[in-house]
Design a protein around this nucleic acid. Structure first.
Lengths: 90, 90
DNA sequence: TTGACATGCAAGCAGCCACTTGCATATAGT
DNA sequence: ACTATATGCAAGTGGCTGCTTGCATGTCAA
């Protein structure tokens, strides 16, 4: 299992999570387009692909293949570790 | 305000947060000692100091000065942003 | 099969980041 | 004042990381 916190450290990766939160099951190209139009991020397809690998390693993104398409879904479960590790004092 | 996520990205900084969670109001030297004994981290005082700066920039650590001592307190409030940004699909 | 589409792999490079090193400042005790 | 204690500042360095580049693999439609 990859490093959850390192995965969250990059702003582009956080933007990807934002996109997947709005609509699950997006493909790599869809994410590229929406990152440009919605976030003004001009990243290459390969860059996004590598970011998705990191997010998947961290368990934040799950993928399902269908033919030549690969759909990406958000999984927020790993984020619970953060809230559990440093709970709010009350 | 510094980058919350970048502050969490470093394992030594997370260990500092763990220490402060156990006991608030620790000083720089106390943290150095406890990081070595509790976490096996052999970092220099200056390294820890720089980490504390990053944590304070991110709002995760608040400091109060008293004479030549500087006490550090944990503030978990910024962590709420994470849970709010990618909420669990209950 | 041919071509277009969608993704994967890997090497190279530039910028950043954590760490060290050395010196400086400030406070408290004697 | 002098010393020890506690922290602060700043330059230099090695390694990691995000990005690009180029090519390869795999899938679908005609």
């Amino acid at each position: 299992m990859g490093d959850l916190y390192k995965a969250l450290a990059d702003p582009t990766r956080r933007a990807i999570l934002d996109e997947l939160r709005q609509r699950d099951g997006q493909t790599l190209y869809e994410l590229c387009v929406r990152l440009i139009s919605n976030h003004g991020l001009g990243s290459t397809r390969q860059a996004i692909s590598q970011h998705l690998d990191v997010l998947e390693e961290a368990g934040l993104v799950r993928t399902r293949r269908q033919g030549r398409f690969k759909f990406h879904d958000l999984d927020t479960a790993p984020l619970r570790e953060i809230a559990d590790r440093w709970p709010s004092p009350e």
